[in-house]
Design a binder for these strands. Structure first.
Lengths: 132, 132
DNA sequence: CCATTAACGACTTTATGTATCCATAATAAC
DNA sequence: GTTATTATGGATACATAAAGTCGTTAATGG
C-alpha cells in the first residue's frame, strides 16, 4: 500500500501555488518544470484539483491555475482526497454474517490519520518556508 | 491506495487462531474454508506470519498453525506489517535540495494511524466476540 | 511405508499506476 | 477575426503489483 506519485506531485504543485504571487495564474509548464515531471501528466492532476474545487483554471494566454479558497482552508486531506479518491483504505471481503469488527478497527485507525491530515493546511508549510 | 485483500485474510485468520482451542494446531484447509479463499493462496500469507514470528507452523499429520506469542501481545500493526511490509506510505520523488516538508507531514500522519493499530490487539476482538 | 500438511517456486491473469501523444476547446492579445 | 497560448479529454502503451493457480518438495504422525 502506497500513496501514488500523483498525490506527491499534486501536493508539491499546491505548495507552489500557495507561495506564488496571489491572483496571478501559474501555468502547468512552469509547475511541471519545477517538479521535474511532464506537462501532460501533471495537467491530469491539476484537472482533478480543479474539479475538487481547490483551484481555479484559466485557459488562453497568461492563463493557468490559482487557488480558489484561502490557503488556510486547504488541508492535506483535501488534496489527497482529490487525487486518491475518498474510498476507505480497507474493505472486508470475507463473507461473515455480522458486521466486521476487524474492518471497524482499521477504519478507526484510518480516521486517526485523516484527522491529522485534515488539521494540516498547506498554509502551515508556506509559513515554515518563509522563515527558513 | 488500499490495503490488500491479503491483509484482510491474514487478520481474519489470526482472529480464528485466537478463538481456537489453545495449543491445538489449525490447518490451512479449515481456515481457507472459513474465509472463502483457496488453500494455496492463504498459505502464502500464513508463511509470512510465521516468518514474522507471530505464529508457529507444524507440518505432517495433525499439523497446522498456532499462536507463538500471547494473544495480548499481537497487535493489528504486527499483522499488517507482516503482510504489507514496513515501508512508509509516502516517499517524495521530487528533487528539491532540502528535506521534504510535505513528506514529513504525511509520515507523521501515518504514524498516528500506526499508533492506533499498535495499541489494538486481536485479543481485544476475541473478548468482544465472546460477549456477543 | 503412507497419508497428511506446510513451504517453495514458476506461472498466468488482472488491475492499477505511470506516462506520452494528439485532438479539441476556450481565452487573451494583437 | 486571426493567432498564439493554455487547459481539457481521449486513446494508447508500458511497467508494476496484486490475485490466484499448479506442481513439487520436505517434514511429520500413524
Amino acid at each position: 500500500m502506497k500513496y501514488s506519485q500523483a498525490t506527491d506531485y499534486a501536493l508539491h504543485a499546491m505548495l507552489h501555488l500557495v507561495t506564488a504571487v496571489p491572483n496571478k495564474p501559474v501555468g502547468v509548464q512552469l509547475l511541471a518544470e519545477k517538479l521535474g515531471v511532464s506537462q501532460t501528466y501533471l495537467s491530469k492532476m491539476m484537472t482533478k484539483l480543479v474539479k475538487a474545487g481547490l483551484i481555479q483554471s484559466a485557459p488562453g494566454a497568461n492563463g493557468g491555475y490559482r487557488l480558489r479558497r484561502k490557503q488556510e482552508e486547504i488541508s492535506f486531506l483535501d488534496i489527497i482526497h482529490a487525487i486518491e479518491g475518498t474510498a476507505s483504505l480497507f474493505e472486508c471481503s470475507v463473507n461473515h454474517g455480522s458486521e466486521c469488527l476487524i474492518q471497524q478497527v482499521v477504519v478507526d485507525a484510518e480516521r486517526q490519520m485523516e484527522q491529522y491530515l485534515e488539521n494540516k493546511k498547506i498554509a502551515d508549510l508556506a509559513k515554515l518556508m518563509k522563515t527558513e
